[in-house]
Design a protein around this nucleic acid. Structure first.
Lengths: 340, 340
DNA sequence: CTGAAAGCGCTTACAG
DNA sequence: CTGAAAGCGCTTACAG
């Protein structure tokens, strides 16, 4: 079994004090260049690595960020939205760039989900990521604020919500994609996705949808809304319900790509052609959205920017700087699923 | 700004020594029940949390596992295989159950990817997860072994490889799905996916494919193989290449569901019907595979069991127990994409 | 059952 | 530029 080398071992070998070793390894300009090089060389030979627990304890920080994913508890936990995987990727990369580690945790509503990462000094701050119902979290967020925990939340801007959030412009995205459908001549549109304040992002998209439908030149248009959470089966069910009613739809705006995939399948099974009979659009631009049949028109969120912004803002918060809620732009991606 | 309570603060308030506080909070039977309750009560009032850095430093462990995702470097890093997301979910849950934290990192070939998690005491052990080319990692794995690092690798069993691995039975999966196609009357089959030892999992699936094609009663059958890595565009390209040749395919066995999705799109664009003209099967049973058109026949890996097995084995390794490479069973999921 | 004390491996203010 | 020493907040062997 190996025995780990400590800074004392290096000090001994180099014939200097342990303090000097510590300084040298942290590139302190106080240490003579030659001594520094020699110490680093010995450290390499001994395969020495600074003990993070000791270092963190001493410095009272952890150089670690915790990512908490909260999901709608009705979702099967194996089915996590691929959009978050992409976010996870960009967050990980942004952390690595800032020389921070990323601790990850999935949490359910019922759990003591804020999980004391910061209180235990395991993390210097927290990123909260998730679709779904964060109304229920309001009290917990307030508690985080009260405890002085550093956190940023991914999601809809919401003045009633405690803390800082970073999110894409869901209202604009919902508006843009609906506007495009109207311009294509669609008149009877349905929005599939929860539209109440329990899913604030979906709600904002729905409001964008409504705004487009309320503009001049749309007096012949009609609209519907059916609830759905962000997965395929939910979209599938929602559109089935709608189809069972006497409604002459010609377009469906889905609150997420996963919902759209379920919708397309249900339409396919009902022998309704997309986009010839009904246009379908999604939201998120997940990788598979350009490989559905037909390819999905959708709204892209810049996940790279989002991840970087989340991390940068959290680090600013940790450093005691003032940070403000920000809304990032979205981009309409037009593909075949809405071409009439 | 809040000031964190320490065990001394509690000791002071409770009128006992700090040692007793520490014991009480760790549920030591040495401490009188009443004293214990009182101390816990005070800890709650002060919102006290054990400092993990101090605790870990003292105990020389971190109660943390590091998950390193290595991806084929040719892959756009935003496109991570959804299969791994599912694995990530089950690994996270298994860690939480064992009261371990999960540190996560994506690494590229070029990086010093083993990243010294264990050497710095940031993690007690490492889980390596990734498709693709781990031939290149052989030296690094050997170094991990030499350093006495605790790790398990997700992937194909390979005697030449240093360390313990946990994986599903790729050979059997490739065999089962191919056998099923043959039983459906398919005769001219193509395997889409890398078949050399740079992608050992794909290679094993290909070997299963070959075995099925070498059995009695298949003398009329023919087979092809085209390289592809695990994403949609690669599958799309691969099948285009194959279609440009004078080959009368009636079935395509894809090394992953993502490849299959690309293949189905290319066939669709070429006006080749699936499954009537060509049957297509995938591998992994990612969530979207039951929402493609047609629904995808595929091979399911039990990701919950896999995640749990990875974590359990790693913890055993950390505890100095003997751990052996294990191969987990797979399950054939039959859907429309191969029904003739 | 409880307390005083050592020590985990660092970083850094202080003194030279 | 360097060293001796304090101290981060715990856990636990030792003594009672």
């Amino acid at each position: 079994m190996k025995v780990k080398a400590t800074s004392f071992d290096i000090a001994h070998k180099a014939g200097v004090s342990q303090s000097t070793v510590s300084r040298a390894l942290r590139d302190s300009p106080l240490v003579n260049q030659e001594t520094r090089d020699k110490i680093k060389q010995i450290a390499r030979e001994l395969n020495y690595k600074v003990d993070k627990n000791a270092s963190n304890l001493r410095q009272q920080q952890s150089k670690t960020i915790a990512l908490l994913l909260f999901e709608d508890p009705t979702t099967d936990d194996s089915l996590i939205n691929p959009f978050f995987l992409t976010m996870l990727g960009s967050i990980t990369r942004a952390c690595a760039q800032a020389d921070y580690d990323l601790l990850i945790s999935f949490q359910n509503l019922s759990d003591d989900w804020h999980a004391d990462y910061e209180d235990t000094n395991k993390a210097d701050g927290i990123i909260l990521l998730g679709y779904g119902d964060y109304q229920d979290y309001r009290d917990k967020l307030s508690k985080l604020v009260a405890q002085g925990t550093h956190f940023v939340r991914w999601g809809a801007e919401d003045e009633e919500f405690p803390g800082v959030s970073i999110g894409c412009d869901n209202f604009q995205g919902g508006y843009d994609v609906t506007k495009h459908l109207l311009e294509q001549g669609c008149q009877t549109l349905a929005f599939v996705g929860g539209a109440d304040n329990h899913a604030p992002e979906f709600q904002a998209r729905y409001q964008g949808f409504c705004k487009a439908l309320g503009e001049p030149g749309t007096h012949n248009s009609q609209s519907y809304q059916v609830d759905a959470i962000s997965n395929e089966p939910s979209g599938y069910q929602a559109i089935k319900t709608l189809l069972s009613k006497p409604v002459a739809l010609d377009a469906v705006v889905c609150a997420s790509d996963l919902i759209a995939i379920g919708v397309i399948q249900a339409l396919d099974e009902a022998n309704i052609r997309v986009p010839e009979d009904i246009a379908v659009v999604g939201y998120d631009n997940i990788p598979v959205s350009s490989f559905t049949s037909p390819k999905l028109t959708t709204v892209k969120q810049d996940t790279n920017l989002a991840g970087k912004t989340l991390v940068d803002n959290l680090l600013n918060l940790i450093n005691g700087e003032n940070v403000e809620t920000r809304t990032l732009p979205v981009e309409l991606i037009i593909r075949q699923s809405c071409q009439r």
